[in-house]
Design a protein around this nucleic acid. Structure first.
Lengths: 329, 329
DNA sequence: CTGAAAGCGCTTACAG
DNA sequence: CTGAAAGCGCTTACAG
């Protein structure tokens, strides 16, 4: 910048004014400065600017696993929207591990990101509340948090989605409905669980704790496979399952195939998320649709409101879901 | 930092020494400083540090589309490896658009990232050569570039993969083999094209330009669907196709289903990448396997070598591929 | 319309 | 083992 100023015969301040298009600069001076910038290939340092302004044009996105198609679709929405507004985004996997999530959170905070979007582990609930603040805005996606300055919510109607799934299965005549609950994290899946329970109740069906199976292995598909095998081995009279997400449902389909149980004739399966491949597996998956791209888009929109806005209290953003019926039920 | 120094009764420099675990500090002083840091909740600013050291602990990853399972698996490898080495990573979608790619490149450069990993559009080949340099290390993945300081290559044996696909189809007795080439970008797909061509030649089969179909629409699956329909409408005697990637192959399967052409009986299809879902579509896809996670891991490893290393010339890293035979052929 | 000075929060030689 | 000074590359009041 100093070099540019010297070469153009102006002060550093004037160069700054030209670069930032602010303040009055005579046309001729501007032209000269711009030409010099071109010539010298000068690029303003975002780092230096960040140091003095105390803000960066960066955001953070912390999610469980980018290789899960649900998250990668959300990420696409986040990236497109952020980029359109001139922000670059840091991406971190938490691998669903509270420790890693915390590390990501503080590392990004140290980078002075403008704000973060996070799909938090339920174990970090309290720490997140302490971490967030007006100076460190957080958008929390699909987890319920009490209102608090610095935290804003973007939510899908998860409970309603679970309810739709059960309604559908009950409508098909199923009386013994199990659930593949993903990992054993009662609070995290509470919404799905609540909707599931409400649905059973509404149809006068039994809620049997043993028919709710979780598994702690690493990949979602594998987890679905293992928990489905377990469920079907111990409780063969269960004729329908509601899966935590589509990957788990896919694992369940594989388990059924191996055990010689036909889908949907012997066992009906409903997934969640409606990832791109839900329509392409065999049989095509009945599932609860979430608009993942829109989820990412709204999260960024909300985060930018918090960054620029007057710090007013913002209502949670609620996004609808809908049941997509295919051949697995 | 000044506050910590004051509260601990030492100089700023001593605090810096403690934070960075460098230089000699008496145990007692260190303890006192550490305690003060805890108490005040002091966190060193990465921005300020970056300004003076002229390096950040950040990397950039620029790819076509994070919602493509191929890229999201690569991203997982990149993220895990970078994080283990203490780096955070910026993620950018180019959407396969040269302009967007360039914007991402320069935006990240302005953020002073340590280096970038990029799957470049072939149109940007020359600009990339000008952009990269010892101070701006680039790892280019799966595109051939001449050796140049500041650019290092990580490559899969793409040509060999294409060759394997053709060998397999020829071995099954197919004499009329077409290709679904993705988007019309001759250079970008040169490697696949070369392997395809070599394979045909080796088996004495015709290379027919009209049997190579591209399409410019947005999503890969859609592109596969449309180009497959076009190919089969105009050239019904083609009995086998080699697809640019698995998403395109999946689109082709859909097209076949609609046209009433059975896979593999009427048309055999080979994909590329072996994404997670290749095994789960119907029929399960024969495809060329790439270790995507490893690709990401190696790219980061190489990038860090360039960052820390003595600037020696580094040979391209070559990763093998293999054919996975399933039921689509 | 333009400039000189101070300062963002650190690290890097250089002294002691 | 510890400290005072300079400076990274910008922006922000404040003058003129």
């Amino acid at each position: 910048m100093r070099d540019v100023a010297r070469a153009a015969g102006v002060s550093i301040k004037t160069v700054s004014r030209v670069v930032n298009k602010q303040g009055e600069v005579s046309d001729e001076t501007r032209r000269r400065v711009l030409a010099t910038i071109q010539e010298l290939g000068y690029r303003p340092s975002k780092v230096a600017r960040a140091l003095v302004t105390q803000r960066t044009d960066t955001l953070g996105l912390i999610l469980g696993d980018i290789s899960n198609p649900f998250f990668s679709e959300v990420a696409r929405g986040v990236l497109d929207t952020a980029q359109a507004e001139g922000y670059d985004v840091f991406l971190c996997n938490s691998d669903y591990d509270p420790e890693q999530e915390l590390r990501a959170l503080s590392s990004l905070a140290d980078h002075n990101v403008g704000g973060m979007i996070v799909f938090p582990c339920w174990e970090n609930r309290e720490k997140l509340r302490a971490f967030a603040g007006p100076a460190r805005p957080l958008v929390v996606v699909n987890r319920i948090f009490e209102p608090q300055p610095g935290i804003s919510l973007v939510l899908n109607e998860i409970r309603r989605g679970a309810r739709l799934a059960v309604d559908h299965l009950a409508g098909k005549g199923h009386r013994s409905i199990g659930m593949l609950a993903g990992r054993a994290a009662p609070l995290q899946i509470m919404e799905r669980m609540q909707g599931f329970r409400e649905g059973l109740q509404a149809h006068g069906l039994p809620f049997v704790a043993d028919w709710i199976v979780a598994d702690e292995c690493n990949s979602d598909v594998e987890r679905g496979y293992r928990s489905a095998r377990r469920l079907m081995a111990h409780h063969p009279r269960v004729t329908a399952v509601f899966a935590y997400n589509d990957l788990i449902a896919v694992g369940a389909i594989q388990a059924c195939r191996e055990l010689g149980r036909r889908v949907p004739d012997d066992v009906a399966i409903v997934g969640f998320d409606n990832i791109q491949f839900a329509a392409m597996v065999q049989p095509p998956l009945t599932t609860v649709h979430i608009d993942k791209y829109e989820l990412g888009r709204q999260a960024v929109t909300r985060l930018l409101e918090m960054l620029n806005g007057p710090g007013s209290d913002l209502e949670p953003i609620r996004l609808d879901v809908e049941l997509v019926v295919r051949q697995s039920t």
